[in-house]
Computed example of a mutant assay.
Amino acid sequence: MTTPHPLLRTAEITPENVDAALGVRVREDQNAFVAPVVRSLAEAYASRATAWPRLILDGDGAVGFVMANFAPGEEDPDFRCGIWRLNIAEGAQRRGYGRFAVGAVVEEARRRGNRRLTVMWVPGEGSPEDFYLGLGFRPTGRVVEGEAVAEMLLD
């Protein structure tokens, strides 16, 4: 995978970088489509057995946050392996960081033996639908709590 910058990487959230993670803020008009990082970290703590939160770093700078869920025992297949959150900082958008973050989740999903990755979004103007479809996700036709469900098969 080609990265926008040779120092681009994911990092576990630690006491040393939690403030950087909390500083990742999307554009104001995107707040209707993605929860802030602080909420994601609270959910990750509450679901620590299955949540996979990661800071996206370019060099020493935080440019984004991604959180996936890996719950192989989950009854609903749409919640076994999926992207829960993707926040790319307002000033860092449209530079390949989101694509990199999704790629990191795909790599982790494959490493764990998953063959299917899901993502959900709130439909509407300004939603991330086109971004995810452009990466190869396909709509399943399901809607869960008002969010469209899409999948990517990991062959």
Score class of each variant (00 low, 15 high):
Gly73Tyr: 13
Leu55Cys: 13
Val66Tyr: 09
Ala92Lys: 10
Gly96Ile: 10
Arg94His: 14
Thr14Ser: 13
Phe65Met: 13
Asn69Lys: 11
Ala109Ile: 04
Ala109Leu: 02
Asn31Trp: 04
Ala51Leu: 02
Glu28Thr: 14
Ala92Met: 02
Leu86Gln: 06
Leu117Lys: 02
Tyr97Lys: 15
Asp76His: 14
Leu153Asp: 11
Thr50Asp: 14
Leu86Val: 03
Glu28Trp: 05
Arg99Asn: 12
Ala68Leu: 09
Met120Asp: 12
Val143Ala: 10
Asp60Pro: 04
Tyr132Val: 02
Arg115Asp: 12
Val106Asn: 01
Tyr45Pro: 04
Phe137Asn: 01
Phe137Pro: 00
Ala11Lys: 00
Phe65Cys: 07
Glu108Met: 02
Val26Asn: 14
Phe33Tyr: 06
Pro123Asp: 03
Gly134Trp: 06
Ala51Asn: 02
Val122Asp: 02
Asp76Pro: 12
Glu147Phe: 01
Gln93Cys: 10
Val18His: 01
Phe100Gln: 09
Ala89Cys: 10
Gly141Thr: 01
Asn114Lys: 11
Val144Gln: 08
Val26Arg: 04
Val106His: 04
His5Val: 00
Asp60Glu: 15
Arg142Pro: 01
Phe65Tyr: 15
Arg112Ala: 00
Val18Leu: 04
Val122Gly: 06
Leu133Lys: 14
Leu41Pro: 15
Ala150Gly: 07
Asp76Lys: 05
Val18Thr: 08
Met1Pro: 09
Ile83Phe: 08
Gly113Pro: 02
Trp52Cys: 04
Arg111Lys: 05
Asp29Arg: 15
Glu28Tyr: 10
Val102Ala: 06
Gln30Ile: 13
